[in-house]
Design a protein around this nucleic acid. Structure first.
Lengths: 164, 164
DNA sequence: TATTGTTATACTCTATAACTATA
DNA sequence: TATAGTTATAGAGTATAACAATA
């Protein structure tokens, strides 16, 4: 049990917030900055954030249908279509008609797609390092712990970045 | 000087990222969640995130011109116009033609606007508390420290939430 | 001539709902 | 009849640039 159960909502805290110094505000600012930086980092790969997100999800588990992916990512199916089109046009994934249910399209990586995912992970590595740079390994672990605690408490869906 | 200068980019770290467990990813997820929650929290006030942001900036320093506000917030002037229109229609702020330069419109809070800002800060208080809830006061301070360190390093502009 | 605020236009995103093919 | 995927449509949001008033 925490030593101090609740950070108390005092007038001082109110002033802190008015000056833009709360945890919530900081979290949203830094989070937005992370997203912006990520979008820039992956642009040279020829992917936008959504394409990269979908590609990553396909890589995490091949063979899922577009409907399943739509559900996991939290996007309407009709929007998945265009993303799959893009990635297929880029030669990174391919649609395969489901064997048992021929209505479904199971998504698989191509060899080229696998290579691209590798590059994507390299960029993710740099990206992550860039935001860990000012921290010691100890502090980084601490930060992850605190963020995961908040994420769990707030019911943040796992492995999905819900805006993109 | 940090005990461990850089978190090293090892294959293990690569796998961690592939599973969606990096700092950067966590930061963007939690940040997005904070933004979503904030938008919901303030809806009952009849404000969207941008209107609230502008109202807050006017409250922080009254009398600035629309151009100045546009610059601080990082939005084109043409978009400020509509926001000011909304807030003025709601009776929360008013445009006053600049005394020395009659091209400018200096923005001021109305009494009603001041009340609304008060309520906004109350909601911000709850909002912030909700995201601090799972942390001890000590941990909260720690988290703020780490986030500010990252924000400084990454050049996050102060008191501006750049997406909105 | 330059700048502040405003309006108009064109463009992108998005959700929604028809539509088709399979089941 | 219901569901996976697709396409069409209409609406919102945005940036850009033209415009009017003032400097």
């Amino acid at each position: 049990m925490p030593r101090t159960p609740h950070p108390k909502p005092t007038p001082a805290r109110r002033d802190e917030l008015f000056r833009g110094r709360g945890v919530a505000f900081l979290l949203s600012q830094v989070g937005a900055q992370v997203s912006r930086a990520w979008a820039e980092q992956i642009r040279p790969l020829g992917l936008d954030v959504r394409e990269a997100m979908l590609l990553w999800h396909v890589a995490r588990e091949e063979g899922r249908s577009q409907r399943e992916l739509a559900e996991v990512i939290g996007l309407p199916e009709s929007r998945i279509v265009g993303l799959v089109d893009s990635l297929e046009r880029l030669g990174l994934i391919e649609r395969r008609t489901g064997a048992t249910d021929r209505r479904t399209r199971q998504l698989h990586l191509t060899d080229s797609g696998r290579t691209r995912v590798d590059r994507l992970m390299s960029i993710a590595l740099e990206h992550d390092a860039s935001f860990s740079q000012s921290l010691t390994a100890e502090q980084r672990g601490l930060l992850i712990g605190l963020l995961e605690r908040i994420a769990r408490r707030q019911g943040v869906p796992e492995a999905v970045h819900p805006d993109f």
